[in-house]
Amino acid sequence: MSSPRSSARLTRNRLARVGFFFIGVVMFYAPFALLVRLAGWLWPSSLAGTGISDVHTACVRMPLGWLTQPWMWPTLSDNPISWLPIVVLPGIALVAGPLFCGWMCPAGAFPEFLGRLVPDRFKFDLRTSVRIRPSRYGFFAGFLLAPFVSSSICCSFCNFTHMQNIVSLFAGDLSGFAFLSSMGMLAAAVWIVPLGILTKGGRGWCLTLCPAGAAMGLASGLGQRLPWFARVRANSDACTSCGTCVRECPMRAVEPVEEGVVIDQHLCTSCMDCVAGCPSDALRYGRP
């Protein structure tokens, strides 16, 4: 069971994450979109220089879909900000874990922290009903292949857009209300309710349907065995099998085994909730 010291540490970690998620809002979302504005200043002839400063210009999913569409490669090469989800974020995930997902993605954080207001007895555990990793990569493969049978499907279920509308509403831009009256509301409802606040951890959408998360998870999983890359690691000798990390992990990445726990690095976002909440200090973030 968790101790007062570990509980306080966990609370501090979550408050820090909330702070970073607000930084993510300021970086990616209108009316701030500082990252897009910076990219527009650096590369005025790119999409970021068109003056459309919102999350669409720094989209972290469309460029992934463009990888399998040769006719979009010129767009990729002309827009350096498109390399963010293809090179920068997976590169960070390879070296240090998917820190963007765990610390900066507002679309992932919103249902997670909203879900903390809902008692656990109303929630279901995605891990016990779905094999998360093959489901996630199956969807990702379909996401990459879909343009060959139709158009890209990435925007038809975009929770980043819904998050942009929520931020816009709070910023006083009421045009987001028009969006809420459309059928796109279905995707928003699924993102927030069954795969959000009613899923243990609140990250059901991230676990199954987010292509950016899958790309970073793949990079994180590939880099887990390389000795110089940092990940959340478990020390089975110190583990008391109290189950705190299993309960607190938003991504359901901590798997109990006979010797203690193992971390599924394909799912872990290095949010450090398990490290902070472990009463026996059996988890740490670092190199092997």
Binding site: V130, R131, P134, S135, R136, Y137, G138, F139, A141, G142, F143, L145, A146, P147, V149, S150, S151, I153, S156, T208
Partner: peptide, 14 residues
């Protein structure tokens, strides 16, 4: 599971 997710995504694309 992988096949089901892939197939459903293909249906979504269609």
């Amino acid at each position: 599971t992988f096949a089901c997710a892939l197939a459903a995504t293909g249906v979504a694309g269609l």
